[in-house]
C-alpha cells in the first residue's frame, strides 16, 4: 500500500530536531540569564551574531591560519566577553541604581541595536557565507532524512551543553549559588554569596552559549548582521512556552517549537513558519502562561 507523505516525515523530524537544537542553544543561555537576573536580555540575539562574526573575522577577513574548532572556541569566548561586558558596563550599574526590569530590558534593546549596527559597520549588511574549506562539510542519511555534518554538530552541541548546564546546576556550588540568587538575591547577598561575581559569570556562560548558536547557524545557513533578531525571537518563544527562567523548560520548549514549526508547514508554504511560532506562543500564553515546566 502506498502511503503518501511517508518519505517526507523523516526529513521533517530531522528538520524539527535541528531547529529545536538551535533554539535550545539560544533559549538555554537566555533562560540562564533571565532566571538569575529576572529581566529579558534582548541583546542576547546580537551577542549570538557577534560570536558568528568573530569566527567570520578569523577565518575570512583576516584568514588566520587557525583550526576551525579553535576559531569557534574563540568566537564563543568573544560572545561571552561581550555579554559579560554588557553586564559590567550597563546592567550592573543600572541594578545598583535600583533600575526596574523594564529599564534593564530597554537598555538591552539599546545594546542590541548598537551591536547590530556595529557589526554592519565592520562587516557590511550583506548576507555572507561562513563555510570553511577545511571544516565541516558533507551529509549523512538517516531513514531517508538528509542531515549535514554541521547540523549533526548543532544537535550534538545542543544536547551536550544542556547536559553540562544540568550537571553544573545540580552538582556544583556555583550552580547552587545561581539557584540561591534566582530564589532571593537579597538574602543570597546577605548570606555571603558574591552575587555580582556570580551574575557576571552567568552572563559570560549564557552569552558564550549564544555565541556557539550563532556560529553554528552561520555555518549552516550563513550570517548577516540582523540574524540576531530572529534568533532572539525564537529563543524567547522557546523559553516562554517551556517555562521562562527554567533550564529544562527552555530546552523542552525549543524542541516543541521546532516540531510545531516544521510539521506546521508540512502542507503549506514555508513562509508560514514564523506565524506558526507566534501562534504557538499566543496559545501557550492563553492556556498555560507559566510554560510547560511549571515552578
Amino acid at each position: 500500500m502506498y502511503i503518501p507523505y511517508v518519505d517526507i516525515v523523516p526529513q521533517l523530524i530531522a528538520n524539527s530536531v535541528i531547529a529545536g537544537a538551535i533554539y535550545a542553544l539560544i533559549a538555554l543561555g537566555f533562560n540562564l540569564i533571565y532566571g538569575t537576573t529576572k529581566f529579558f536580555n534582548l541583546a542576547h540575539g546580537a551577542v549570538a551574531a557577534c560570536g558568528a562574526y568573530a569566527v567570520f573575522a578569523i577565518l575570512k577577513t583576516f584568514a588566520l591560519p587557525v583550526n576551525i574548532v579553535v576559531a569557534c572556541a574563540i568566537g564563543a569566548f568573544v560572545a561571552g566577553i561581550i555579554g559579560y561586558g554588557l553586564e559590567r558596563l550597563i546592567y550592573r550599574p543600572l541594578r545598583r541604581r535600583k533600575a526596574s526590569n523594564m529599564v534593564l530590558m530597554v537598555a538591552s534593546l539599546g545594546a542590541f541595536t548598537a551591536l547590530q549596527a556595529f557589526i554592519a559597520i565592520l562587516f557590511t549588511s550583506q548576507f555572507q557565507a561562513l563555510e570553511s574549506s577545511g571544516g565541516i562539510s558533507g551529509a549523512i542519511e538517516i531513514y531517508g532524512a538528509i542531515i549535514t555534518h554541521t547540523q549533526v554538530v548543532i544537535i550534538t552541541c545542543g544536547i551536550a551543553i544542556m547536559a553540562i548546564l544540568a550537571f553544573i546546576a545540580k552538582y556544583t556550588l556555583f550552580g547552587k549559588a545561581v539557584s540561591a540568587i534566582k530564589d532571593d538575591e537579597e538574602v543570597a547577598r546577605m548570606v555571603g554569596i558574591d552575587t555580582d561575581r556570580i551574575i557576571g559569570k552567568v552572563f559570560f556562560i549564557g552569552s558564550a552559549i549564544a555565541g556557539v548558536a550563532g556560529i553554528l547557524i552561520g555555518f549552516d545557513t550563513g550570517i548577516e548582521p540582523t540574524m540576531g533578531m530572529n534568533l532572539l525571537l525564537k529563543g524567547t518563544i522557546a523559553s516562554i512556552i517551556g517555562g521562562v527562567g527554567s533550564l529544562y523548560g527552555g530546552f523542552l520548549g525549543a524542541f516543541v517549537l521546532g516540531f510545531a514549526e516544521n510539521f506546521g508547514i508540512w502542507k503549506i508554504s514555508g513562509e508560514w513558519k514564523d506565524a506558526i511560532a507566534f501562534v504557538v506562543l499566543i496559545v501557550f500564553l492563553l492556556v498555560r502562561p507559566e510554560g510547560i515546566i511549571k515552578k
Binding site: Y171, T172, L173, F174, K176, A177, S179, A180, K182, D183, D184, V187, A188, V191, G192, I193, D194, R197, I198, K201, K295
Partner: peptide, 30 residues
C-alpha cells in the same frame, strides 16, 4: 521567612557555607 524556596533543605545550608575565590566557584564541588 525567606528561604531559597526552589532548593533542597540541604542545599539551603550548603550554599551559605561557600567561600568563593575568583575561579573556585566554577570548579569547586560539594
Amino acid at each position: 521567612v525567606r528561604l531559597f524556596e526552589q532548593m533542597t533543605v540541604g542545599d539551603n545550608i550548603m550554599v551559605v557555607l561557600t567561600a568563593r575565590g575568583p575561579y573556585a566557584a566554577l570548579t569547586e564541588r560539594s
